[in-house]
Design a binder for these strands. Structure first.
Lengths: 215, 215
DNA sequence: TCGGTAAGCTGACGGCATGACAGGACAAGT
DNA sequence: ACTTGTCCTGTCATGCCGTCAGCTTACCGA
């Protein structure tokens, strides 16, 4: 499926090659966490990995290319977010729990990968299709599940006809992503992490079901 | 209040100086719209403005500094977003209209300034306090108004006690900002602009009042 | 009208990142 | 030890960064 890992000039990478390649990715990832995207230089990544810039260019066309690689790895991991919604109910107390767990899991995932997700977000916002698709891939699992839930409730007549499930789901997911990205921001806004979560869950619940949760 | 415009080395800028300074800002702004932030180079901006890189560095410490300047100008403009909520009611049909107009105005503002707002968002997410404060300055007008509205409804007993107005308001504003930043994204998700707005307005109304709007 | 002064701009330069290549180091099999 | 193919790096041309000295331009008082 994934095919073999190849260098820029077409060679297949062996065991050692893959190791240094991965090391470069790890170092880049670390670098992204500690300094602004704009200031991340190939030479710094190479130095940190104990190798030379030339080696970096053997495996990646540029910094952007390497970031895409990292993001791709994360995206497959992120598919696990579907579990947060699979087979869950939105009725009654269990609905409130579903919302809470979704918020919890989502924020946690974002917190773990915030550095790369920032860059993916930027790339997508700038209109780069590769980043755009990647962002979709990450969010689609949650988004589709949410949209399905809403559509289902709508079919049962428990949600208004003129609600567009995809639009609402997309907006809620965007909200979760944005809040996750600016979590630190809220704290200086006078909102503590612990307070934030239930309020987010409330908004999600309201959005999906159109009703306040029964706790 | 604003004091005089000064060059990096402390001279006060005269008429001509301010003109080129502004021209550099305009060109940078244009540049940000057409190419990725990471690839915007001082030399390109200078060339576009028909001047030399040295001139750029006379007025700004670096690209980031110039971006901050542009964002600052935009932030004062953005204070006008308060109007979208000032003296509006959240009751009955007028509540629905308030929500709609807020969404409309917000998306429009974002669409107009998307390039700079992208960069501000990135800077804030990366933890840069200057960008962070700027983002607050832009969003505060809307955020505070929303939080006040919620707190007011809460005082009247129309919103649950355990709702944190600041958290909900912040989340809703974050949602609006995120959706605005990825407006194009929704369209390929199968959601048209025109469909998106009412659904966003619905979510805002639900978040503020806890109830479905009466249209 | 004529300097004098400060603002405004640029050419040029050392320094560093980029990206390409060719050649040397290394591991594994024979 | 020798061969083979993978892997890494020294080196180089190119181009951007950020700074400086020095030149040009505008303003102002005498």
């Amino acid at each position: 499926m994934t095919g073999q890992v190849r260098t820029v000039d077409g060679r297949v990478a062996g065991r050692r090659g893959q190791a240094t390649r991965q090391k470069l990715l790890d170092c880049l990832s670390e670098m992204l966490s500690s300094s602004p995207y704009r200031d991340v230089k190939v030479i710094d990544v190479a130095r940190k990995a104990g190798t030379s810039p030339a080696t970096f260019y053997q495996y990646f066309p540029d910094v952007e290319g390497a970031v895409l690689e990292i993001a791709e790895q994360m995206a497959t991991e992120g598919a696990g977010l579907t579990e947060l919604l699979e087979g869950r109910s939105w009725a009654g107390k269990s609905g409130w729990q579903t919302a809470q767990e979704l918020v919890d899991g989502f924020l946690e995932f974002w917190r773990k990968n915030d550095a790369i997700l920032r860059v993916v977000d930027l790339g997508a916002a700038e209109g780069d299709k590769r980043f755009y698709k990647l962002r979709m891939k990450i969010l689609n699992s949650v988004n589709n599940s949410l949209a399905d839930s809403i559509a289902e409730l709508q079919a049962k007549g428990r949600v208004d006809k003129d609600v567009n499930p995809a639009a609402v789901a997309g907006s809620l997911v965007a909200m979760l992503a944005a809040v996750a990205a600016h979590q630190k921001g809220f704290s200086t806004w006078g909102v503590k992490q612990a307070e934030l979560k239930p309020n987010l869950a409330l908004l999600v619940h309201l959005g999906v079901t159109g009703k306040k949760p029964s706790k």
